[in-house]
């Protein structure tokens, strides 16, 4: 029996108007991401990988088609409603780690707490941040500032932040793009273990074949179309 999908795209197209005519970043993409699995999305630059990330993360509305998170159709949600869904169910990791240097590592990890409606206390949020840092193997960095830690460690901090709200779906866009090979392997291992360790569905967008091979499933994007679902 097929596992239920944590996220699914049905005939999704994204078209950008440009001075030289419309560009089809995603063209009639239909794909689903089963729960507690890891998927690598590969493709060359300009193949639509990052657009796929922004659509899956509800940061961009598709021009056509439907995006479903579990059983919820999200295509028609307002930006605030989409933010609410993100706050509870989606974690995103970016290539540029996007950590605030004026906050400590644990404060960066608990950034989602500031925007959550749940009345969790700050000390509970702090404990959760420390717990995630421990799961990711960097508990000793909690009180440092992000500019005092290495690139690989920063990306782990970013992953911890993405996991803070216990998302059902974690999307990582070129998470190893700024890292050396050894560090990249460590980060990839961490990411692809998440379905087993925390039960999150992981979607990793990468152009690194070696990283992609470590995922449970691999799909390829060519000129905005899924070539090998």
């Amino acid at each position: 029996m097929k596992a239920p999908a944590a996220a699914a795209l049905a005939s999704v197209s994204v078209v950008y108007p440009t001075p030289s005519g419309p560009v089809h970043a995603l063209d009639d993409v239909t794909v689903d991401f089963p729960e507690m699995t890891s998927t690598a999305v590969v493709g060359r630059s300009g193949s639509g990988k990052s657009t796929l990330v922004s659509v899956l993360a509800l940061l961009r509305r598709p021009t056509a088609g439907q995006v479903q998170l579990r059983s919820v159709v999200t295509s028609a949600l307002s930006s605030d409603a989409a933010a609410k869904v993100r706050a509870g169910g989606i974690g995103v990791v970016f290539q540029a780690f996007h950590l605030e240097n004026s906050l400590t590592v644990w404060e960066n990890v608990m950034l989602p707490w500031y925007f959550q409606t749940a009345r969790t206390s700050r000390s509970l949020a702090h404990d959760r941040a420390l717990e995630l840092l421990a799961v990711l193997g960097i508990p000793e960095l909690a009180d440092r500032n992000p500019n005092e830690v290495s690139g690989g460690q920063r990306q782990r901090v970013a992953i911890a932040r993405a996991l803070f709200a216990q998302p059902t779906l974690l999307i990582a866009d070129e998470p190893t793009g700024n890292l050396d090979e050894e560090t990249a392997n460590g980060v990839a291992e961490t990411l692809f273990l998440l379905p087993l360790t925390v039960g999150t569905t992981v979607v990793v967008v990468t152009h690194d074949k070696a990283i992609a091979d470590r995922a449970g499933r691999k799909i390829s994007l060519i000129k905005g179309r899924v070539s090998d679902p």
Partner: peptide
């Protein structure tokens, strides 16, 4: 701007 964008990505609404 990146921080506001990131905040949106982790669940902040326009009002926040």
């Amino acid at each position: 701007s990146w921080f506001y964008g990131l905040s949106r990505a982790v669940g902040a609404r326009a009002l926040e």
